[in-house]
């Protein structure tokens, strides 16, 4: 099922997730966390993956990386194609070689994501020594280059410092330097700025955008903040209860969302052009993933919901401009400009 929002290149997408299903089997029951996610990424592109907490953004990313804890996680079905090969069919050793070297990832909380007892220089250089086979001296030289690249001031002097000695923003830069060590073609940034101050957030976003451009990587930017992605992303995939419910070009999506959930998200960010408007929020809570409602999983919270929404699961509707929306009334929502 090619996603129509951007045409498939002749030799396929760089990275493509197809109809992925992941569940977590715990003592309390089975949580259906990912229920048919499909998205793709082409070289040099930035895809933003957006959604509330618990919608499955990180789990999808970890499935791509192959770092889900199995058990409790269990990939039920789907494909994750990288350069045409389905990663899910590869053995652990082959997947390990792809991690870091082809697809790298940075995490939300750099303080806990970095090992507290090793100096940052050691941690960045580890990939170079262990994976690229660089000598200590070469790894050290390259580590300083990487730290310069992510704009850590006085990099050479900070090699021996420990993660807790850095500010939040600098720590995230260390994470980024570490992820870039092996020149990956895809970088997955899982809420890279959520733990940071607003001004630092902007700096990190700028840095990521610049690095993506300069290094020619493709970037998957996971966030729950629509405001963050506007200037950086090419396309947006909106997730809800383990599904992509809307997938569109950034500008098209901002101009006219075609799914009530996206519409709700957009209405909950303050707009500079509408003074004194009341911020609306989406009522209710995301569903319990052990008991996802029948039909459209969003129906208990949806202002557009009708009987058909309870009875039938909406499939992806392709709208005129090539975008998709998993809503029975996608066109109607799209045309309803009353925001």
């Amino acid at each position: 099922m090619p996603t129509p929002v951007s045409p498939t290149p002749p030799d396929g997408h760089l990275l493509e997730v197809r109809d992925l299903h992941v569940e977590f089997r715990t003592g309390e029951g089975v949580a259906r966390v990912i229920n048919g996610v499909s998205y793709h990424l082409d070289a040099g592109e930035t895809l933003a993956v957006l959604g509330e907490s618990g919608s499955g953004k990180s789990v999808t990313a970890q499935a791509i990386m192959g770092i889900l804890d199995t058990p409790p996680a269990h990939v039920r079905s789907g494909e994750i194609r990288y350069q045409g090969r389905d990663l899910l069919t590869l053995g652990e050793e082959e997947r390990r070689r792809i991690r870091g070297a082809e697809i790298a990832m940075i995490f939300q909380d750099a303080l806990s994501a970095l090992n507290p007892v090793f100096p940052v220089g050691w941690q960045i250089g580890e990939s170079l020594r262990q994976r690229a086979g660089l000598s200590r001296a070469d790894a050290r030289r390259r580590t300083v280059e990487l730290m310069d690249l992510v704009r850590i001031p006085a990099a050479a002097k900070r090699l021996g410092d420990y993660p807790h000695q850095f500010s939040g923003g600098m720590r995230q830069r260390v994470m980024i330097a570490m992820a870039l060590a092996l020149d990956p073609k895809v970088l997955i940034a899982d809420e890279p700025t959520t733990a940071l101050d607003v001004t630092v957030q902007a700096q990190i976003m700028d840095l990521l955008a610049d690095l993506r451009r300069d290094l020619g990587m493709a970037l998957i930017l996971i966030t729950h903040d629509l405001g963050v992605v506007a200037g950086v992303a090419d396309r947006i995939a909106v997730m809800y209860a383990g599904r992509i419910i809307e997938h569109a070009d950034v500008r098209a999506l901002y101009r006219a969302p075609a799914h009530p959930y996206t519409k709700g998200l957009l209405e909950s960010i303050p707009r500079l052009d509408v003074r004194g408007q009341a911020l609306s929020t989406i009522r209710g809570l995301p569903p319990n993933l052990m008991r996802i409602p029948p039909g459209c999983p969003f129906h208990p919270r949806c202002p557009y919901a009708r009987q058909v929404c309870v009875d039938e699961v909406p499939h992806d509707l392709v709208l005129g401009d090539g975008r998709t929306s998993a809503c029975h009334f996608a066109q109607e929502v799209h045309d309803d400009r009353a925001r």
Partner: peptide, 17 residues
């Protein structure tokens, strides 16, 4: 189960290390 283990895995290190 610590976060830094997830990071180490995402670097593609072997489990022994």
């Amino acid at each position: 189960r610590a976060d830094y283990v997830r990071t180490a895995r995402s670097k593609g290190l072997v489990r022994r290390r």
